[in-house]
C-alpha cells in the first residue's frame, strides 16, 4: 500500500477496498459497519424503548489546519454533530461519515484523523455505522473535508424549543468563551502569536444528560459554534420575541483569549466555540442546574450570564463591565483582525 492517498483510493477498485478494510473497518469496528452493506440498519423497537422522537442532523467540517491545539478535524466532526443532537435534547446514537480527500494526503494523516474520530465517538457514546470516501484531484479540495450526519432519540417529555424563552428566565453558559476560535487563529500561524490556548472541542451529550435529569423544564439549549455566543443569543431573542440581557462581567473568558482579542481587535462574543452550550431556564431551577453543570467535567466553569426580559423589539443587550449597555448585533461576515 502506498503511503499517500491517490485517485485510485476513491475509484471503487482494489485500492479503495484495501483502504476501507485496513483503516475504516478496523478503526471504527462495529457490527453494522462489518456487514459491508450500503446502509446501516436499526431495530426500530429498540429505538422506541428509548424515546418517542428521532432526531437527525448533519454538518460538514472544513478546518485549516487539520490538527490544532486541543483537537483535530476528526474530533471536531464527531463532537459537532453529537452536540447538535444533544442540545436538542436527543441522546446521540449513530453517526455517518463522508470523507472528501485531496489526492496526496498522507495516509498517516488520514489514519490519525480516523483514530481521533473513533476515540471521540467512544467518549460520546456513539457509533460510526456508515461512511463514504471520495478522492479529488489536487486543488479539488483543501487536504480533507468531512461530513457527518447523526441520529439520536429524544425521550418522552423532553421538548426543547428556542421559541420558549420567557421574560424572567435565566441564561446559563458551560464555561470559557472563544477558546476554539482563538486556538484556530493562532494555529494558522499567519499572525505569529505564541500562546497555549487550546480548542474547547468536546462532546456535550453527558453534560446535557445531567442537565435534563436535574431540570427537565429547561426551555432551550444551543451550542455556540460559528458566530459565537452573540449569534446564539440573537437567535434565541428572535425566535422567542424577547430581549436577552447579558452581563459582560459574568462572561467567562480566559486571560489569554482576552489578550489575543485585545491584540487583534477581536470580540470574544463572536469567537467560535466547539464545546460550549447556552441554556435558558426558569429562574427557580437555575441555581440547582448551575451546581449540576459545575459538577460535570464539561461544565466546571459554568456561569449564569444573564436573563431574559420583555422586548419591544427582540435583541441582545450587553451590560458592559463599565456599567453601560449596548445592543449586540450579528456579525457582518467573518471577524477580521484589525489595527484600527
Amino acid at each position: 500500500m502506498s503511503d499517500i492517498i491517490t485517485l485510485a483510493h476513491g475509484s471503487g477498485g482494489k485500492a479503495m477496498d484495501e483502504l476501507i478494510r485496513s483503516l475504516f473497518l478496523t478503526t471504527f469496528a462495529n457490527p453494522q459497519l462489518a456487514q459491508m452493506e450500503d446502509q446501516a440498519r436499526f431495530d426500530l423497537a429498540t429505538l422506541q424503548q428509548q424515546g418517542d422522537r428521532l432526531a437527525f442532523t448533519t454538518d460538514s467540517y472544513v478546518v485549516d489546519p487539520l490538527f490544532f491545539p486541543g483537537g483535530d478535524i476528526g474530533k471536531l466532526a464527531v463532537t459537532g454533530t453529537v452536540n447538535d443532537l444533544a442540545v436538542g435534547g436527543a441522546r446521540p446514537l449513530y453517526l455517518s461519515c463522508g470523507f472528501i480527500i485531496e489526492e496526496g494526503l498522507p495516509i498517516a494523516t488520514l489514519k490519525a484523523v480516523v483514530e481521533s474520530m473513533q476515540a471521540t465517538a467512544r467518549e460520546a457514546d456513539v457509533v460510526i455505522v456508515t461512511g463514504d470516501t471520495k478522492v479529488v484531484p489536487r486543488g479539488g479540495c483543501d487536504k480533507l473535508f468531512i461530513n457527518t450526519a447523526g441520529v439520536g432519540v429524544i425521550a418522552a417529555g423532553i421538548d426543547l424549543s428556542i421559541q420558549t424563552a420567557r421574560p424572567g428566565d435565566l441564561i446559563l453558559l458551560n464555561g470559557y468563551l472563544g477558546d476554539h476560535g482563538a486556538a484556530i487563529v493562532d494555529a494558522r500561524g499567519d499572525l505569529a502569536l505564541q500562546n497555549t490556548i487550546a480548542s474547547d472541542c468536546q462532546p456535550l451529550q453527558g453534560l446535557v444528560n445531567s442537565m435534563l435529569e436535574c431540570c427537565p423544564q429547561i426551555r432551550c439549549m444551543r451550542d455556540a459554534t460559528r458566530g459565537g455566543l452573540a449569534t446564539v443569543l440573537y437567535e434565541f431573542a428572535q425566535a422567542s420575541a424577547c430581549t436577552m440581557e447579558v452581563e459582560e462581567s459574568r462572561l467567562p473568558v480566559r486571560d489569554e483569549v482576552r489578550g489575543m482579542c485585545e491584540i487583534l481587535g477581536l470580540d470574544p462574543l463572536y469567537l467560535a466555540n466547539e464545546g460550549k452550550l447556552v441554556a435558558v431556564v426558569p429562574e427557580a431551577a437555575a441555581t440547582e442546574l448551575l451546581q449540576v453543570m459545575r459538577a460535570h467535567p464539561a461544565g466546571r466553569h459554568s456561569a449564569i450570564i444573564g436573563r431574559v426580559s420583555q422586548a419591544s423589539r427582540p435583541g441582545v443587550l450587553l451590560t458592559t463591565g463599565f456599567g453601560s449597555q449596548r445592543l449586540i448585533d450579528r456579525l457582518t461576515g467573518e471577524q477580521l483582525p484589525r489595527i484600527c
Partner: peptide
C-alpha cells in the same frame, strides 16, 4: 492589515479579489 479587506473599490474589495484567486494575505505587522 485586516481592516482594508472589505473596503470597496469601484468594482471589488480585496476580500472579493482574494476569492477570485489573488494572493492576498492578512498580517498583523
Amino acid at each position: 492589515f485586516g481592516d482594508a479587506m472589505r473596503v470597496p473599490g469601484s468594482r471589488q474589495s480585496l476580500l472579493q479579489a482574494k476569492t477570485d484567486g489573488a494572493d492576498i494575505r492578512m498580517l498583523y505587522s
